[in-house]
Amino acid sequence: MASTVPVVIYPPDGDGGRRVRVDGTILGLAYSVKDVAAFLQEAGLQDWDEMDVVRSGMIEWRGSGPDDWAT
């Protein structure tokens, strides 16, 4: 089933990294909320910081929320 939100953060992998997908494109692996904010800034949301990432309804956290970076 496709996501209805433009940003999807996948569950942590074996190393604690989480894939970050924006509008259907995988941008890379994030290891913290700070990494997610950096990916989103590169994708055009320059003003976004860690708090924006945690609070946004634009982001679908799969498997667990923004506090989980371990398997």
Rank of each mutant, 00 (worst) to 15 (best):
D23Q: 12
S56M: 04
W69C: 02
V20Y: 00
R55D: 10
T4K: 11
R62F: 02
V7A: 04
R19L: 08
G24W: 14
Q41M: 09
L27G: 00
D35Y: 04
A2T: 09
W69H: 01
M1I: 08
D47Y: 09
G24R: 09
I26F: 14
A30F: 04
I26D: 13
S32C: 10
I26R: 15
I26T: 14
T71A: 14
P12N: 03
M51E: 15
R55W: 15
V22C: 06
T71D: 13
G17V: 08
M1W: 06
V8L: 13
L27W: 04
M1V: 14
Y10G: 01
V22P: 00
G65P: 03
S3R: 05
S56C: 07
A2F: 05
G65R: 15
P12H: 07
M58H: 07
G28A: 02
G24F: 11
A70V: 11
W69Y: 11
R18T: 03
D49F: 03
V20N: 01
E50Y: 09
D15K: 12
V53R: 00
G14D: 15
R21G: 00
S56W: 08
I9S: 01
W48R: 02
F39Q: 00
V20I: 14
T71W: 14
W61D: 05
L40Y: 00
V36N: 01
A43W: 02
P11Q: 04
W48S: 01
F39A: 02
D23I: 07
V54A: 12
L45F: 15
E60C: 12
D13H: 11
S64Q: 13
G16C: 05
Q46D: 14
V53M: 04
G65A: 12
P12Q: 04
P12S: 05
V7N: 02
S32V: 08
M1H: 13
M51N: 15
G16A: 04
L40R: 01
S64R: 12
V36A: 05
V33N: 05
I59Y: 02
G16K: 00
G17P: 06
A37G: 05
S3P: 07
V5R: 14
W61Q: 05
R62H: 10
V8E: 13
G65C: 07
V33F: 03
I59M: 10
Y10I: 03
M1Q: 13
L40E: 00
G14Y: 07
G14K: 14
A2P: 11
R18H: 10
E60N: 11
G57M: 09
T71E: 12
G63M: 08
Y31Q: 09
D35M: 03
V54Y: 04
A30Y: 01
A30K: 01
W69S: 01
A70G: 06
D47V: 08
Y10A: 12
S56V: 06
L27C: 07
D15S: 11
K34R: 14
G44D: 10
A38G: 03
L40C: 02
G14L: 12
L29W: 08
V22Q: 02
E50T: 09
T25E: 12
L40A: 02
R18W: 03
E50H: 09
V8R: 12
G14I: 10
V36R: 02
W69F: 15
Y31W: 15
L40D: 00
L45I: 06
Y10M: 14
S32L: 07
S56A: 15
M58V: 04
Q41C: 09
L45C: 05
R55N: 11
D52S: 09
S3E: 12
T71L: 13
G44A: 05
W48F: 11
